[in-house]
């Protein structure tokens, strides 16, 4: 599949933003962080900026962005529609939680519960994003059980690292110390999930040029004449080969930057507490870089079965 920049930005930015909102809700619910005005303003501004910028980017690739509101109507059958509806619904608890935190200076009691509801909504929204891809049977690399866990784990690690870094700057050390433990766990899970995902997509798929044409009984099928001598929409959108050429190297980069390095850096900040802010800052940058590579691969490596008609 063609890895469109807008979709890569959409999935990574909203993932990090929702991850941030998730951990804010959890921290408040556990009473690990007080509702400080300055800290709240900055953290919520970053979280909502990531989410809103991501959602807007996803509408930019539409042929008719002015009709985007229509995408909210088909939640009964369409995961894209469900994602739109949930993204909007999630603004209600997370918005209330942010307002209470920043304006009322309160993130306890009822507001802590609202924060927790916002945390759950955030993860459900990330899940619906992953299901947009997971539900497409025509792209076997996406239609697997590994897709949704991958999206959820990477949202939790990127958002969590972002929050640890900002909490470290703000001096909320109990929150940081609590936060890094689940992040370490999720980084390890993410590492295993991505390895399993890649070993799964390297296996041959059920469809072939033989099943696509139904000519398998006559032998091995190959295209000898394309319908046209210029690439058409189908080939531009679904056919993409650069990734497969460099996939080994890119997978290594995604694993090292997205999971291994942040893991090592978190352990490093335990060993050298004086450099903890610096370590966590670097961890945020390498993780985001690793995730963008991972997401680029997720699109570029996925082979659409229509390419079987084109020998690509």
């Amino acid at each position: 599949m063609h890895p469109a920049k807008s979709v890569i930005f959409f999935t990574t930015a909203t993932g990090a933003g929702y991850g941030l909102l998730f951990w804010l809700g959890v921290l408040a619910h556990r009473g690990l962080i007080k509702a400080d005005f300055k800290f709240g303003l900055v953290v919520f501004a970053i979280a909502f900026a990531l989410v809103i910028a991501g959602l807007l980017a996803s509408t930019l690739h539409l042929g008719r962005p002015s009709r985007a509101w229509r995408a909210l109507s088909q939640w009964r059958s369409s995961w894209l529609s469900r994602e739109g509806v949930l993204a909007i619904l999630t603004f209600i608890p997370t918005g209330l939680f942010a307002l209470a935190w920043v304006i009322l200076g309160d993130n306890t009691g009822i507001f802590a519960w609202i924060g927790l509801i916002g945390a759950v909504c955030s993860m459900v929204t990330v899940y619906t994003t992953s299901m947009i891809y997971r539900s497409l049977k025509a792209i076997p690399a996406w239609a697997t059980g590994w897709t949704s866990p991958g999206y959820l784990l990477m949202s939790l690690t990127s958002g969590g690292l972002l929050l640890s870094f900002m909490a470290a700057i703000g001096g909320y050390w109990p929150a940081v110390d609590w936060l890094v433990l689940p992040i370490l766990f999720f980084l390890a899970c993410g590492f295993v999930i991505k390895l399993s995902y890649w070993s799964m997509i390297d296996r041959p798929i059920a469809s072939s040029a033989e099943t696509a044409t139904g000519l398998g009984e006559f032998g091995k099928v190959r295209l000898i004449e394309s319908p046209h001598d210029q690439p058409n929409y189908l080939l531009k959108e679904m056919g993409f080969e650069i990734a497969r050429k460099h996939s080994k190297k890119l997978r290594r980069i995604a694993l090292i930057c997205g999971f291994l390095l942040p893991f090592v850096l978190i352990i490093g900040q335990w060993q050298l507490p004086s450099l903890a802010v610096c370590f966590l800052g670097i961890a945020v940058i390498v993780t985001m870089f690793g995730l963008i590579v991972e997401r680029w691969l997720f699109f570029a490596e996925a082979k659409h079965v229509v390419t079987l008609y084109y020998d690509t």
Binding site: M1, H61, L62, G63, R64, P65, R67, A68, R70, A71, S78, L80, I132, L136, K137, A138, I139, S207, N232, Y233, L234, E237, M238, H304, V305, V306, Y309
Partner: peptide, 23 residues
């Protein structure tokens, strides 16, 4: 139609095409 192209991703047979002129 908003031209999100998801239907063309969902079709295994390549039966749907995007009209760039009309979006």
């Amino acid at each position: 139609c908003i031209g999100c192209k998801l239907c063309s991703w969902a079709c295994p047979y390549g039966a749907r095409e995007y009209d760039e002129d009309e979006g």
